[in-house]
Design a protein around this nucleic acid. Structure first.
Lengths: 124, 124
DNA sequence: TGCTATTTGCAATTTAATTGCATTAAATGA
DNA sequence: TCATTTAATGCAATTAAATTGCAAATAGCA
């Protein structure tokens, strides 16, 4: 557990929404943490591999985002089409649906991703 | 409406799941359609702009995919984690949820994306 | 303190997507 | 039909996110 890794982890812990590698990099720079963008990527990869952070990809976005795995219930996101603001949605109407989908498709369902987009209060 | 554009459109029309630009390019090559990958990109862009095709991005995938807009009901997808097979899901349990989400978040909901992943019959 | 294994920074590479520009093909009108 | 305008194409180069190789630096531990 190195200084840089702690900085990455600390920032993820204190942020209420998922961050992209470049966002993490920019914020760490602002905090005067000497870190390379490649190191951000590698730390996120490592933290994901050990199950500490979760990698998500929002609909229509280019980059991956990362959020803490621990202490968070199953949730989804809503994202503003205008300013990009992201908030958690704590509801999930999909648990009951899995059996039906497995029956219809013969797939074995592992997980799902759900995302709403629209306009946040400021951008309406 | 050029030959190449017709080829792109024809392939999208005859495929039951969303295709990526590189998949389209590879298949057109196989059909001996002389086309550049850049042209595939530009045609998809143009077809999207006039509302003929829809651009989607599946969770955890790198590239965009495209599918016909016309004649298709609102639907979602299920994707095999192993072989990448994609199928449509014609159900959507989310319409009723929009009002609740707007109330809770004060966002104005525009649309949503929902995707299941798991293992297809062959890969189980 | 000294040794080993891991992590880091830098440079270079990969892949998806985009852009500039000269050439070619389509489409419209006389 | 042919000429003229307009849009589409191919090639090369570029951009951005992510990854990799490798030497130097750092952490962990005896």
């Amino acid at each position: 557990m190195t200084r840089t890794r702690q900085a990455v982890l600390g920032l993820l812990e204190s942020t209420k929404y998922p961050l992209s590698p470049s966002e993490l990099y920019a914020r760490l720079k602002k905090q005067n943490v000497a870190i390379d963008l490649v190191t951000v990527y590698r730390n996120l990869h490592a933290l994901k591999a050990i199950g500490v952070v979760r990698q998500i990809k929002l609909h229509q976005e280019e980059q991956f985002r990362y959020e803490m795995e621990e202490g968070r219930e199953h949730h989804h996101h809503i994202r503003c089409k205008s300013c990009g603001k992201i908030e958690d949605l704590l509801l999930c109407p999909l648990k009951k649906l899995t059996a039906l989908i497995e029956q219809e498709t013969r797939f074995l369902v592992g997980d799902h991703s759900l995302e709403f987009s629209g306009w946040c209060p400021k951008c309406q």
